[in-house]
Design a protein around this nucleic acid. Structure first.
Length: 280
DNA sequence: AAACAAACCTGTGCGC
DNA sequence: TGCGCACAGGTTTGTT
């Protein structure tokens, strides 16, 4: 579900609401959510600790604690993080609850129907062992910055379909299915082009498109689709879905050429949307 | 090396 | 109204 812009929106909400607050109590209702380690490890690692910052790399939320440990949360497909008044009625599938000290006392809920998401407390000095994906993550276009030159080198290194390359978190971190399709359309590049055969001119357009789509989506608070699965920590949805030009628009007129219809194909199990007239 | 299918789960929307 | 199927924003693993 959430891609870089959605996770960044959640990060900003958390930064405003939980930084500097002590976690007084932790409840784990679903072992699966803490499967990387254990409920014991998460409860012991968080209880009494204060969150000192909320960082993001790709789709991973990383929160340093005053204990020296770090809290990592990943929303995967259906995860949501909500800040609510202490004692408020919890929605179904609330798997982890962190009680936050302060006035008023509040709770941070990790809600996740499909249970792909996870919560783990780890020692950042051992990140390569405890969360290897984080250690091996590619460049985050927003958090790290991504120059046209860097991007060009990433494309040149391999001969993969451009969509698969953009979705590979070890190469570029944070782009998911929506923003990948949107960026390729903005740049006029087809999903199945070989990454090392994208021309310099197209590389520039694609680089610009990625930065633009991610930036604008963050400004819009992300994309909240029809199922309203994704929302920020205050429960509000984003509105970038109103700007989608190809995602979930199969069969509808292309908003750019206004002649062809958007086509949807399945690529490695992912719905892929593109305009056969605008993208080459 | 690259591409794909399947797996992990639950909910929703659609056609019949 | 009910049922079965397809499909969903992510990532890993195993197989061609």
């Amino acid at each position: 579900m959430p891609e870089l812009p959605e996770v960044e929106t959640v990060r900003r909400g958390l930064e405003a609401q939980v930084v500097g607050r002590r976690i007084t109590k932790v409840e784990v209702g679903r072992e699966r959510t803490v499967r990387r380690t254990s409920a014991r490890s998460v409860i012991d690692g968080l209880t009494g600790a204060t969150i000192t910052a909320v960082n993001r790399r790709g789709k991973y939320l990383l929160c340093p604690l005053d204990s020296g440990d770090e809290l990592m949360m990943h929303l995967r497909m259906s995860g949501r993080l909500l800040v609510a008044p202490a004692g408020a009625e919890r929605p179904p599938h609330t798997h982890v609850v962190m009680h936050l000290a302060g006035k008023p006392a509040e709770e941070l809920w990790f809600v996740d129907p499909r249970t792909f998401g996870e919560v783990v407390v780890f020692d950042p000095r051992n990140v390569a062992v405890e969360i290897p994906e984080v250690a091996k993550m590619g460049v985050d276009p927003i958090a790290d910055g991504l120059t046209r030159k860097q991007f060009s080198e990433l494309l040149r290194r391999r001969a993969r379909q451009i969509k698969a390359l953009l979705l590979d978190q070890h190469v570029v971190a944070g782009i998911g299915n929506i923003y990948c399709d949107e960026a390729l359309h903005l740049a006029g590049v087809r999903w199945d082009r070989r990454s090392n055969e994208v021309t310099p001119r197209e590389t520039t357009k694609l680089h610009t498109a990625i930065m633009r789509v991610l930036g604008e989506a963050i400004e819009a608070g992300g994309s909240t689709l029809a199922d309203t699965q994704y929302v920020g920590v205050d429960g509000a949805g984003g509105w970038f879905q109103l700007h989608h030009r190809v995602y979930d628009r199969a069969g509808q007129r292309c908003l750019t050429c206004r002649k062809a219809n958007i086509v949807r194909v399945a690529v490695a199990g992912r719905g892929t949307h593109f305009c056969p007239r605008c993208q080459h």
